[in-house]
């Protein structure tokens, strides 16, 4: 299981990477490589050139401001997992990141790589869609909802690359989050996953409720919800297309999505009450 031959080159700047990508449509970016390497080894992708962006200054930084949390594409998942600032500013991402693969893959895997790969079961993409994040690229910025088009397919224009992921920051005092997923084994691709952020107003009323579903659907989906009830979630799930594979059919995924959404919501509610 060895890759087909390619040329390995290191980009020193985003501009340089962008030029190389524009010059060669068969070139691929490697960030952490945790998904690209198996695809190379199985010869499912056969790039002419592999452009390493790990050496680009600044791409591995996390910037937290009053309104925004911005991750460079090369921020390792483990950095997110260990970041006190992320835990404080984006508790939902901090929870979800622990479900991404296994500890060794999180040490190499990156935020940008996960986003660009667009696996339907990816937790980072699910949180991005749930919280209304913006995918930063060398072309335009995309709202996460518009970026993921289909399994392993994004709106990224040819020749462009993902440079980061930017989340709006909620500073409300009364916020609860929840994350739940089911996989064949812990750490496997989720058959269904749910992420929830619940914000209460000063009077205890629901100021904002976001529940996103991943794993079950071809791309992560932010549910359109009027109220935090099982009926409302079920109704929001009803029109969604569910995936199926030898492990789990669409019916299971739909039921699991509902159950997990309820779990995530329950966790968020308990947290906000605490």
């Amino acid at each position: 299981m060895k890759p087909a031959p390619f040329e390995y080159i290191r980009a020193e700047s985003v501009l340089q990477a962008q030029e190389w990508l524009a010059a060669d449509p068969e070139a691929r970016v490697i960030a952490g490589g945790q998904t690209l390497m198996p695809m190379l080894a199985m010869r499912l992708v056969r790039p002419t050139r592999v452009i390493d962006i790990a050496g680009i200054a600044g791409l591995d930084e996390i910037a937290v401001t009053a309104e925004l949390v911005t991750f460079g594409a090369m921020v390792r998942q483990v950095t997110v997992e260990r970041s006190a600032a992320v835990a404080q500013a984006l508790p939902l991402l901090a929870k979800a990141i622990r479900y991404v693969g296994h500890p060794p893959t999180r040490r190499r895997g990156t935020i940008g790589g996960s986003v660009a790969n667009a696996d339907p079961a990816a937790e980072i993409a699910l949180v991005a869609v749930t919280l209304g994040a913006e995918v930063l690229t060398t072309a335009d910025g995309f709202s996460a909802r518009d970026f993921f088009l289909a399994p392993m397919t994004t709106a990224l224009p040819a020749g462009a690359m993902v440079t980061g992921l930017r989340f709006p920051r909620v500073t409300a005092a009364r916020r609860g989050t929840g994350f739940a997923e089911v996989a064949m084994r812990q750490g496997d691709y989720a058959m269904a996953a749910a992420a929830c952020e619940l914000v209460l107003g000063a009077g205890g009323e629901v100021a904002s409720l976001r529940i996103g579903i991943g794993g079950a659907t071809p791309v992560p989906v932010l549910l359109d919800l009027a109220e935090p009830t099982r009926e409302a979630i079920a109704a929001a799930l009803a029109p969604l297309e569910m995936m199926h594979d030898p492990n789990a059919g669409a019916g299971y995924r739909r039921r699991a999505a509902l159950a997990l959404a309820m779990q995530a919501l329950d966790e968020a509610q308990r947290e906000v009450m605490a």
């Binding site: 089911v182 058959m191 492990n247 789990a248 059919g249 019916g251 299971y252 039921r255």
Partner: peptide
């Protein structure tokens, strides 16, 4: 005995 198999049996589907 995969989860989906068990769940589908319980659901009657």
């Amino acid at each position: 005995m995969r989860p989906a198999l068990l769940s589908d049996l319980l659901e009657g589907t």
